[in-house]
Design a protein around this nucleic acid. Structure first.
Length: 509
DNA sequence: TTCCGACAGTGGGGTCGCAAT
DNA sequence: ATTGCGACCCCACTATCGGAA
């Protein structure tokens, strides 16, 4: 199959807004692919690379050679070039990589170049990724979508599942089983503003657990072999030796466990997320780092134990199995109750101990890998501040033509100026985007055709956020975590905005 | 006919490791 | 040594489609 066919399909998919017609385009393309190319076609058309990453991003694609006049690239050839580019990473040879990228792009026609750029920068923007592709595979293979989804959850790779679906149909899909040592897509949680809203979704009784601000891990043990995966199924085993040792000490032969690793202070309170992320992200000198910043692990689910798959059991049954295999000190603190007041108290206690919040879980929920079902609902406390808009950036994609990303500042009473605390593009409706674009252009103090448009600091906006973190980037040394717009405050003047001291008090440093 | 679940898109801050400067 | 870049940790929120109710 030629790359140009994939590029054309992507264009057609992007051109239709309906999901059913996207599915039709994708299924038609998959039907034309040779068996040996199906996996690559699925990967590209759902915005992935079989190599995962090859070390080429936005900057490496700035200057491209002139496009070819005639399409000639095959999927197999492109895949092979990507392999070779990836093999160059870490060898100190940027020039060799540059040469491979240039060679590939010189052989690509203009539409093919556009497609490759979008693919490599992770911005396919065709309105179809895994979800739509799952339906397309089902359509192309003539099997129920539920069976494709089931296989995807167990196998964790859509190209692998799709290739089997097209070659062997439903029978082939039924061959996918949980395999210890191979990661599954982790189950995700919805969110709710309040404990009461969370209980609405899950029903009662509900299990309520601490939500720890660490890194999600899926740990596999087969005999003396332990492998650790992150939420995106990257392998991090060598970076978390404490976790490996803890799992090897469990009285089990095979296990797949779901949990969170986190750095705790000696008093048991959590370190800031940055400390945990730095530890988990470090590959070098791990033995020394673990002395200074040891990691703790808290498990909250078991997907497999000693030969038995637990995915389809209700949550309570998985908990019973987990409690038998894991000592209580390694279990996420949890309570099961129908009493909303008790849930409230548990939430308050978790937050008082420095944790992020709680997860409220339905006792009957099976493990829905890769789904964001109503079986698990997270609740976190929310802070708000009234801040001043200092500048705005033009949006991309569906936000093109709107001033989208706001620069936010807190009042510094000593100078009368404003200290920038970060940016946000979240929480805006299309109507609000249109309004703020018009209003901000009136306040602009610089050219409106620049990417960043500075404005007179007059608009006050109420911002919700999860916390304040230390910032090496912003002048106040602080930045807001997960900032989003709640509403504009036309009733407030900029000199009534919250001050940097208020932010410092929340930060505690 | 209306409602709502699932998805995709639009970007945020921080850190590590590598290569080039 | 410093800087730029890619990759990956954490993520919230809105618009939209189409099946469920």
């Amino acid at each position: 199959m030629l790359l140009v066919e994939v590029a054309r399909t992507s264009e057609a998919v992007a051109g239709d807004s309906g999901r059913l017609s996207k599915v039709a385009h994708l299924a038609e393309a998959l039907g034309r692919a040779e068996p040996g190319e199906v996996a690559v076609a699925i990967a590209y058309l759902s915005g992935e690379l079989p190599q995962r990453q090859i070390g080429v991003g936005w900057r490496g694609l700035r200057e491209l050679p002139p496009p070819a006049a005639v399409p000639s690239l095959t999927l197999a050839h492109v895949d092979e070039v990507f392999d070779r580019i990836k093999a160059q990473s870490g060898t100190g040879s940027q020039a060799a990589r540059r040469g491979l990228v240039n060679g590939l792009f010189a052989a690509a026609t203009e539409p093919e170049q556009r497609f490759l750029v979008r693919l490599l920068t992770g911005e396919l923007r065709q309105g179809a990724l895994d979800g739509v592709m799952t339906d397309a595979i089902a359509r192309a293979a003539g099997v129920p979508a539920a069976e494709v989804r089931r296989a995807l959850m167990l196998r964790g790779s859509l190209p692998a599942v799709g290739a089997t679906a097209l070659a062997e149909g439903a029978e082939g899909l039924r061959g996918f089983r949980l395999e210890v040592g191979r990661p599954l897509q982790p189950m995700l949680a919805q969110s709710a503003d309040t404990v009461a809203a969370a209980l609405e979704k899950t029903g009662v009784p509900a299990a309520v657990e601490w939500k720890l601000d660490g890194v999600r891990v899926q740990v596999h043990r087969a005999g003396s072999e332990v492998t650790v995966f992150t939420r995106t199924l990257d392998e991090i085993t060598s970076r978390v030796p404490e976790l490996v040792e803890a799992v090897l000490a469990l009285p089990v032969t095979t296990a797949v466990l779901d949990g969170e690793v986190i750095a705790l202070r000696p008093d048991g309170r959590p370190e800031p997320f940055q400390v945990t992320a730095s530890r988990v992200g470090s590959r070098t000198d791990v033995a020394r780092l673990r002395e200074a910043t040891p990691l703790s692990v808290f498990f909250f689910d078991a997907l497999h134990l000693d030969g038995q798959d637990l995915l389809d059991l209700p949550y309570t049954a998985r908990q019973d199995a987990l409690a038998k295999a894991v000592p209580s000190g390694l279990l996420t603190p949890r309570v099961t109750t129908s009493d909303a007041g008790e849930v409230e108290e548990f939430f308050a206690a978790a937050v008082a101990r420095g944790h992020e919040g709680v997860l409220v879980k339905s006792p009957d929920a099976v493990y829905a890998a890769g789904r964001r079902g109503a079986g698990w609902v997270k609740v976190k406390p929310r802070h708000t501040l009234d801040l001043v808009v200092l500048a705005a950036e033009w949006g991309n994609g569906r936000r093109r033509g709107w001033l989208s990303n706001l620069h936010l500042g807190a009042l510094d009473p000593e100078t009368g100026g404003y200290v920038m605390l970060g940016k946000t593009f979240k929480g805006m409706t299309d109507k609000l985007l249109a309004w703020q674009t018009e209003r901000l252009l009136e306040l602009a103090t610089g050219p409106a055709d620049q990417y960043v448009v500075p404005v007179r600091p007059e608009l006050v906006v109420e911002i919700a956020f999860d916390g304040v973190q230390r910032s090496p980037r912003y002048p106040g040394g602080m930045a807001l975590r997960f900032a989003r717009v709640v509403r504009y405050r036309p009733d407030k003047r900029p000199q009534d905005a919250d001050t940097v001291q208020t932010v410092r008090d929340i930060a505690g440093f």
